[in-house]
Each structure stands twice: as C-alpha cells, then as structure tokens.
Design a protein around this nucleic acid. Structure first.
Lengths: 124, 124
DNA sequence: ACCTATAGTTTCCTAAAGGGAACTGGTTTC
DNA sequence: GAAACCAGTTCCCTTTAGGAAACTATAGGT
C-alpha cells in the first residue's frame, strides 16, 4: 500500500497554505516590499520620486510593479492636471495593513545579522 | 540641479531595507514557506514524507531547498543508520523564530480572501 | 535651439528559477 | 531474479523575471 500525505490535507491546513501562497504572490518580485516600504514612510510620492528612492529600480520595473500593486488595491494612482503631467502614488488603507508583516520581516532580518555576527566572532 | 533621494538614505532606513532583503532571500523560491510550514507542524520528517506532504514538489527542488535551509541553520538534517538509509529533517529552534512571520502572512492572506469575496458580492 | 523634467511604453536581451525523467546504489520483500 | 523503497543527483529543457536603452509627447528654463 502506498503511503499518503496526512498533515497538509486537513481543511484548516490547506486554507493556510493557500493564504500564504496568495500573500506571497501579491508581494512577489524583487521590488514590492521595497516600494511598499517607501510609500509607507511618505504617504504621497510621484513616479520620479520613487525612481530616486527605490535604489536601483528602472522605469519599466517600477511601472509594472506599481500596476500590480494598484490592481491589488494596495496603492492608489492619481493623475494630476499639472503642466508636465504628474502622477501621485499613495498607499491605501488596505495597503497599510501590510505594515505588521513588513515589520516582522525587517526585525527578523536584523536579528539574523546579529546572530551571524556573533557566530563569526565566536569562531575566531 | 538634480533632485536626489532623501527618504531611504538614512542609516536606520537602509539597514531596514537590508534586513528585508536578507530575510526574503533566505525565504526565496516557490517552496521555502511551504516546507518550513510543514516542518513546523510535525517536528520530524523524512525526505519521502516531505515529498508527499509538500504538494507538487519534486525530488530535485526539495533536495535543493532543504540544502538552502540547512545552510541557513533553519533546518537540521540527520542521517540514520537504518537498513534502507533514512534521513530525518527537523526544524531548528532558530527556524522556529520564523513562526510569527508565517502566521502574519497566513492571516493577512485569509483576510485578503474575505475582502475579495465581500467585494465580489457587493458588485452584484 | 537645446537641455531638463514629467510618466511611462516598447524592444531586445540575459540570467535565474523551475521541473520532468532518468539514473545511482544500497536493501528488503515477493 | 525482479520489483519496490529510500535519498538523492544529473541532464536537459522551458518559463519567468529582470534590466538596459531607446522612444513617446508635452512643457519650462537659459
């Protein structure tokens, strides 16, 4: 008789797995956290501001990532009727609910650095 | 005069950005969360158990992801001296510190589903 | 006239991620 | 002796992600 999966087949489990997949897909790619993190700090930003703040990103990537975020209602996009056209990007209230996740991830990463540093020193 | 970045250039900010990059690199790929989540539930698992529990993963990917996780001290690997060789994978204490992150991500994803569902019903 | 700025899009390319299938090599079971 | 189970590895292939450079069109500055 073949062995079968048992742990991850309960409904509570598979909905958890789906939830994680959903979240990670929404936040997928090299730049999403970076962009959201930047918008969380500053409330309003224009396209060119983001190009300058998000270190290393190019116009194509920024444009694409912002479209993704807008589609998922995490970021709002407002075209202003100014002389050279300007566009305002803001994080939505919904987008702000990501802050706890981002904080957890940032904190974990900082603890990680500390541990690596400690381990490296103990080896000497 | 050229405009310059200002927000993300403070030291506290750039170390936060680095921390997020670190964490996401350690947890990168399609399967890491899935594997860690499974190991968090069950403490000890063998290679073939994981193949069965982590839905859709192949031997090559599982092997590679487990090596990554072991390198980062999130998972331990113990070869048992049994007749057909068996290997025991366990999450480390350090790996368990990821639980809050995973919980946040899972919870956010479940709230997301609820909102999408609500929005879809209101449109009718 | 020419440079800069605005917000992108388009084209073309490379690098990285992911996956299927076969294979290793040992052991146990039928 | 053939088949199956364990824990992988190797080879080859496809798909996706990411990025650089050029280009759209409009307007203000020097």
């Amino acid at each position: 008789m073949k062995k079968q999966a048992s742990l991850n087949t309960t409904t509570s489990c598979s909905s958890r797995i789906t939830a994680i997949k959903d979240t990670m897909e929404i936040l997928s790619g090299k730049w999403k956290f970076h962009i959201i993190g930047t918008l969380l700090q500053s409330d309003k930003m224009r396209f060119m501001d983001l190009i300058r703040e998000v270190d290393g990103i190019g116009a194509k990537m920024l444009s694409k990532e912002l479209q993704d975020l807008e589609m998922n209602h995490l970021v709002s996009r407002t075209v202003l009727n100014t002389k050279p056209i300007t566009v305002e990007y803001k994080i939505t209230d919904y987008g702000k609910t990501l802050e706890p996740i981002i904080n957890e991830i940032a904190n974990w990463g900082m603890e990680y650095r500390k541990l690596i540093y400690k381990a490296a020193n103990q080896e000497d």
